[in-house]
Design a protein around this nucleic acid. Structure first.
Length: 928
RNA sequence: GCUGAAGUGGUGGAACUGGUAGACACGCAGGACUUAAAAUCCUGUUCGCCCAAAAGCGAGUGCGGGUUCGAUUCCCGCCUUCAGUACCA
């Protein structure tokens, strides 16, 4: 029998499913290993060939780990709340739950075709009430917690109340809003319940706050910073504006330092770690207060990383949105200032970036007093100062900062030299070399000496202090959408209250339409009679997309637990994800939020690990490879029905059109399929080269509109799942982005057929011999045993595939059909090509299904020991010939033998070598 | 601008700690089998020069330098591509 991949693959996929081969227990004598894929959002388009790349890699790894004796948790599920389903619902009126269910079924079918070893009994869906019950539960814990900076962890809000009752606000060290009140214990006790609740909200980790948000009118919702790219929404590309709204937020900034520190403890790709560091954006410096001249009770606080340049300050700049601006603008300047603010508002974020180099600003007319010199310095506003960063105000030091320099030049403000080595004729000089001049207290000191001295003085006088600033902002947690988790909160007297824990889950109510209400409330406002205890308004916004994905790896540990999000035993057993594979597009969203929730869950004693994902790998993006045909244009530039082959197109006037890559093979167009593809092409004519129509090609994003989408189902239909799996791995290094090109898949398919033939005689009958293996056969086998071991441990899957080919080529040449060799080879190949290996494993007489849990063969280095080596002999580093010599020869013998060699003498041409370098077992280099 | 990754045949890529550059495939060319095709198998395939052929010679891992007996690998400078980020004080 020939290699019948279709029958074999269906057979084993059914076998695995009905025998629950990959179901895993939460108890085992074996060591545990947790391999996780970033779960997909089930979109309507289904999977294309790029999606499974990471899943295949993680599956190979999981199967390998099982063979190495690990108890492997390898689950899959769906991130099934999200915008596309809702947009579709708005257009069609179909409930998102229905389309989501349909998409999930489609995904599952496609995933099953590839032969993954997922434990499907643990499948989760974030939109399932039994799942989002626990997302809501975690929200409640966040609401009931505050961040105690003294203990450096989250603690119950009751602890805070207790402190307020005993010591008032003075005893508290917590991360909180800026506008918290100062009160004594006595005052606290006299607060009304209302006042207390309002004050506590300023401390909770999940809190309501009036904040400026990214409002997307087209989507009718708020977006997080990482969901906005270049001033438009990441999904859909709609304009985003700034708007003030009452919003749920997550106090992720409380964890900024721990999120930063944790990065040193994880094994993640450097670029990704770097992105998170930048996102957190820690900068160490000082805050300094500048009192306003003539207004002793008003001061401007600035943040600076170069407090040493304080004597070089010649102006202050506020963000146009800064709250002091209206107060300090003098009447004479008000026109200018208002005008400038108006202009800034009109500029979109895009414009502001576009003319980043032009200098603009307006003088407020007010002056601040330099805290050390007492000199008056003008206060300006300019849009290069951002309201959202630091204090929204900077001290202008033109000698040390290029933007300040340009600003000072433009508005003719003084530029003061403050270091003796500073060169400021052309531009600012930010170096810290030399000693300070014109700087009273620190004159003659170096940078290292000046900073501590200044900080000490500022602190002593109460005008400044050392400060660490983070770029990261608290995360907005509300979306004015339907298809998300309802927030388990109702409002009483305008203040939020949690529903009771036993009332979870708070189910998503039915609505008549998935649009905002006439009064502009979110879709949930349409739900009829949806009130807590029949009378209190529920929160009408839902949670953002990242809520459900910020803890899902714990649910897999114990997916059906109805009493806890996962049992303590399960969490203690599985602990954290050992290997996480997914795309780098989640670098600052999902991966940051997940780490945040994980740290919180640890603080409240629910989980063990500070970091949830020990090792992380980013699979590269699979890009599309588009094909083009070239339509001939007539003299008027109108398209004809004639198409010119790629090599001839420059001789004609043509226009390039995308053509479906599925009717192109190795860039050669299938003419019949092309004619059949569209009615207008039925009569198409072609100008061919060498009888063929050759298409042009280009690498682009894989998308329907570019006709370059390749569906894994089609590949599987033609070549089988094992071929698809191996080919995806063969394409190149996992982490590298690369275009999908079906050219070349034949090679992998041929390899599998060749592998199959090792076990079969010329007439296709299964035939293996029990004879003892020869030295050459064992060498081949043990080479691959070691190679695959090495490769998988360093995630170099592509090189394994090549090595398998080499091995099978060698065994074919040796005409090897020995069980002693082939049985082990089946085990080694099985993580990559599980179906064919299961079939051969059972043909070899092994019990069906035991392959997945058998032991990986032990590598024996003895089989690789050689007693001879063919030494490459190079002259001045250039390899010229090879000489076979015994490996027992020592360096001297080798040198002698090499120099005695006739060919070597010929190369030397009578000259005496200057030196002969011999590296035993490697190379000989003759220096002439 | 800054940060990170990467530049190797016609194509995907290999060379793991400085030691035979181009493994393994695709494609292409030629051949065997076949009435024919498919499938399969064999041979060749970095480029240039030389040759009937065997062989030989020269160049060669983005570009220019350096270290070294020896560099795709290490160092310095530059160029290009991709990704992230963007007035961060």
């Amino acid at each position: 029998m020939d290699y019948q991949f279709k029958t074999i693959e269906k057979k084993w996929q059914r076998f695995w499913a009905s025998n629950q081969t990959f179901k895993v227990n939460n108890t085992s004598d074996k060591p545990k290993y947790y391999v996780l894929d970033m779960f997909p959002y089930p979109s309507g388009a289904g999977l294309h060939v790029g999606h499974p790349l990471g899943y295949i890699a993680s599956d190979v790894f999981s199967r390998y780990k099982r063979l190495r004796g690990y108890n492997v948790l390898h689950p899959m599920g769906y991130d099934s709340f999200g915008l596309p389903a809702e947009q579709y619902a708005i257009q069609t009126g179909q409930h998102p739950a229905i389309t989501t269910e349909r998409n999930i079924n489609r995904y599952r079918e496609q995933l099953d075709n590839i032969g993954f070893s997922f434990d499907w009994s643990r499948e989760i869906r974030t939109s399932d009430p039994s799942y989002y019950k626990w997302t809501q539960w975690i929200f409640m814990q966040l609401f009931n917690s505050f961040y105690n900076t003294a203990s450096d962890k989250a603690e119950p809000i009751d602890t805070l109340i207790h402190v307020f009752e005993k010591e008032g606000s003075a005893g508290v060290r917590a991360v909180c809003d800026e506008d918290v009140l100062t009160f004594s214990a006595d005052q606290w006790r006299h607060f009304s319940e209302q006042e207390k609740a309002a004050e506590l909200l300023k401390y909770r980790l999940a809190y309501l706050k009036e904040s400026t948000v990214n409002w997307c009118p087209a989507l009718g919702t708020v977006l997080a910073n990482d969901e906005v790219k270049d001033g438009v929404s990441e999904r859909g590309g709609y304009p985003v504006i700034q708007k003030k709204m009452m919003q749920w937020s997550m106090r992720i900034t409380a964890y900024a330092e721990r999120l930063l520190q944790g990065l040193d403890t994880v094994d993640w790709p450097e670029p990704l770690v770097e992105m998170q560091r930048n996102w957190i954006g820690k900068s160490i410096g000082a805050s300094v207060k500048f009192t306003l001249a003539g207004m002793d009770d008003q001061s401007i606080e600035v943040f600076t990383t170069r407090v040493d340049t304080i004597y070089g300050v010649s102006f202050l700049v506020l963000a146009p949105e800064h709250e002091l601006v209206p107060h300090i603008t003098t009447d004479e300047q008000r026109g200018h200032v208002d005008n400038y603010i108006e202009q800034t508002k009109k500029k979109s974020e895009r414009d502001r970036m576009a003319d980043a180099r032009s200098v603009t600003g307006a003088f407020t007319g007010s002056y601040a007093v330099h805290p050390l010199t007492g000199k008056q310095i003008p206060v300006w506003i300019a849009d290069y100062v951002l309201a959202g960063y630091g204090t929204g105000a900077v001290m202008g030091v033109p000698s040390g900062d290029q933007r300040d320099y340009l600003f000072a030049k433009h508005f003719q403000l003084p530029i003061l030299k403050i270091l003796d080595t500073q060169a400021i004729e052309e531009e600012a000089d930010s170096r810290k070399e030399g000693v300070y001049i014109n700087s009273e207290l620190i004159n003659g000191l170096s940078y290292q000496e000046a900073v501590p001295k200044l900080i000490a003085v500022l602190e002593e006088r109460g005008i400044g202090k050392a400060k660490v600033n983070y770029r990261m902002r608290d995360a907005i947690f509300g979306r004015q959408r339907y298809w998300g988790e309802p927030v388990p909160v109702y409002f009483k007297d305008g203040l939020p209250h949690l529903i009771k824990e036993e009332e979870l889950p708070l189910l998503l109510p039915e609505v008549d339409k998935y649009l905002p209400t006439e009064s502009g409330e979110p879709p949930l406002g349409r739900a009829v009679d949806w009130k807590y205890q029949g009378s209190y308004e529920y929160e009408l916004s839902t949670m953002p997309g990242w809520a459900g994905s910020s803890w899902y790896w714990y649910r897999y540990m114990d997916a059906h637990n109805s009493a806890h999000f996962a049992s303590e035993e399960a969490i203690n057993y599985w602990q954290a994800v050992d290997l996480y594979i997914g795309g780098s597009e989640h670098a600052t969203g999902h991966l940051l939020y997940s780490r945040f929730w994980n740290k919180f869950l640890k603080d409240i004693g629910k989980v063990q690990e500070e970091e949830p994902f020990k090792k992380l790998i980013n699979q590269g993006m699979i890009q599309g490879r588009s094909n083009f045909v070239y339509r001939l244009l007539d003299e008027n530039g109108v398209g004809t029905n004639t198409f010119v082959s790629f090599g001839l197109k420059d001789q004609y006037r043509t226009i390039a059109l995308h053509v479906d890559v599925n009717i192109v093979n190795n860039d050669v167009l299938n003419l019949d399929k092309f004619k059949a593809s569209r009615p207008e092409y039925a009569q198409a004519e072609f100008i061919l080269e060498e009888g063929k129509y050759v298409c042009g090609h280009e690498v682009e994003k894989m998308s329907k509109s570019k006709f370059n989408v390749v569906n894994p189902d089609d590949i599987i239909e033609q070549y089988g799942a094992d071929t698809l799996r191996m080919y995806e791995m063969f394409l190149g290094p996992l982490e590298q982005s690369k275009p999908w090109n079906t050219n070349g898949i034949e090679g992998v398919h041929k390899f599998l057929r060749k592998f199959w033939r090792l076990f079969h005689d010329a007439s296709g009958n299964f035939s293996v011999s029990d004879a003892a293996a020869t030295k050459a056969e064992l060498k081949s086998l043990h080479k691959i045993i070691r190679k695959v071991e090495d490769d998988i441990e360093r995630f170099s899957f592509n090189t394994s595939v090549s090595s398998f080919m080499i091995c099978v080529n060698e065994l074919t040449d040796l005409k090897c059909n020995k069980r002693a060799v082939l049985q082990d080879l089946v085990i080694v190949l099985s993580p990559y090509a599980p179906h064919i290996c299961e079939e051969l494993w059972s043909l070899l007489g092994n019990e069906a299904g035991t392959l997945s849990y058998t032991a990986y063969p032990t590598f024996n280095p003895e089989y690789l020991v050689e007693d001879e080596f063919e030494y490459p002999i190079s002259f001045n580093g250039k390899m010229r010939l090879k000489i076979n010599m015994s490996l027992s020869l020592d360096v001297k013998d080798i040198e002698q033998e090499v120099l005695a060699n006739e060919d070597v003498q010929r190369y030397l041409d009578g000259k005496t070598p200057k030196k002969v370098i011999v590296v035993k077992g490697k190379i000989v280099n003759v220096v002439v």
